[in-house]
Nucleic acid binder design. Structure first.
Lengths: 138, 138
DNA sequence: GTATGTGCAAAACCTTTGCAGGTTA
DNA sequence: TAACCTGCAAAGGTTTTGCACATAC
């Protein structure tokens, strides 16, 4: 997480092949804090790699998520978004500007006797920037 | 929320028509704590209302969610699930038995200057029942 | 009576999969 | 070389939409 060489090393150790496509997708994700969708990643990587197939993007994202090198965001959006950060944190989606903002928040391990392995916390509302322009004039 | 006559009254006041289909869908949802999907609701209501169209189920669920009489669950599942409870609470999805369990948890109003209007908190893991049978024999 | 809602079928999406050819190690 | 990966196209699944008919109010 957050380190491309380390991620490549881990994938290699797990027997995955390091193709140029996979490296390009990883680089696109790790250089992007906007939580892109599969087609946004595809569009981005295609600028340098025009032959890249959307299916390969989906396959690679699924692989990376299974390897726990990235995570996905399903709540609050119509399409699945992807996040290179795998450490516990939440997301805030602004209903005005659409931005997806990281919120630092601790993870939980145990609750009511249930063993928690993963959690997804998504807030929706108006972000601080939009609040200012909406309520104090711009 | 959690009260069918009150919900019907609110919908009526907002100008929606109270069709038998809508009432049946509401009754199915409000009598169901399992967080069903659209097609599960469709299957349930069809037992008494065989002509009901799946499109009508989707239209009605969208209407009810917009009116804030129900909410949807997107995280942790392949299909959208629906919940008749609209008060703040979280969900735990068991990866072993698949059950979706309500978790009582407070809502947040403000965070880092962002105005929060809605939040979706979903945990995944092994529920307490499955923990017992998995780790202490059954 | 009129605006709305329903059912059907088709469309629109996102995501996955089968397969032939190409690539990594 | 052998297993794996890619690109393409097609399939799969959920959700939405267009339209003619029906219904609530």
């Amino acid at each position: 997480m957050e380190n491309i060489p380390a991620t490549l090393e881990k994938l290699k150790k797990q027997g995955y092949k390091l193709t140029p496509q996979r490296q390009a997708i990883l680089e696109s994700l790790f250089g992007n804090t906007t939580h892109p969708s599969a087609s946004e990643i595809h569009r981005d990587v295609c600028r340098r790699f025009p032959m890249l197939s959307l299916a390969t993007v989906y396959n690679t994202l699924r692989l990376l998520e299974a390897a726990q090198e990235i995570r996905s965001i399903r709540a609050g959006t119509d399409r699945t978004l992807y996040d290179y950060r795998t450490d516990p944190h939440a997301h805030f989606i602004c209903r005005s500007c659409g931005n997806v903002i990281d919120i630092e928040e601790e993870g939980v391990r145990e609750l009511d006797g249930h063993r928690i392995q993963f959690q997804e916390v998504t807030y929706q509302g108006i972000c601080s920037v939009c609040c200012r322009s909406l309520f104090e004039g711009d």
